[in-house]
């Protein structure tokens, strides 16, 4: 049996963890739970987490995925860390606007702008 593919890939840039999603659909509960656990461990490992979620690969997400992102935001904030979202495609951005979560998250158009926005 082959090894399961990790739900996210992580690269470090200075002290910032840049996350990309492996699957273009963040819909399936099991997949969302895998992502949540992986993000939680990234947050747990850092004293003050700086996390950039790059949505370049993402074409679909569900309200369960939004819940996972809010959980991530809450946990990062509880450790006085910083969370940025970037590269969100227009259809996905509309989901953030409908739910008004564009007010909750710091969303930047590109990865470069997001990297430059960390304090």
């Amino acid at each position: 049996m082959s090894e399961p593919i990790p739900p996210i890939s992580v690269v470090s840039h200075k002290n910032i963890q840049i996350v990309e999603f492996t699957n273009n659909k963040i819909l399936d509960e099991a997949n969302i739970e895998d992502i949540r656990k992986t993000l939680d461990s990234l947050i747990d490992e850092a004293e003050r987490p700086s996390l950039l979620l790059d949505f370049v690969t993402v074409d679909h997400l569900s309200s369960a995925a939004l819940g996972m992102l809010i959980n991530t935001n809450n946990r990062v904030k509880s450790k006085n860390g910083q969370l940025r979202l970037a590269n969100i495609k227009p259809q996905i951005m509309e989901v953030f606007v409908i739910t008004k979560l564009n007010k909750l998250f710091k969303i930047l158009p590109t990865r470069e702008e997001a990297l430059g926005s960390f304090l």
């Binding site: 309200s63 369960a64 939004l66 819940g67 996972m68 409908i98 739910t99 008004k100 979560l101």
Partner: peptide, 17 residues
């Protein structure tokens, strides 16, 4: 779910969408 006091809740957005 779009009320300010509910924005950080992790569920309750399916019907709205």
């Amino acid at each position: 779910p779009t009320a300010d006091e509910n924005l950080t809740k992790c569920s309750g957005r399916g019907l709205l969408l």
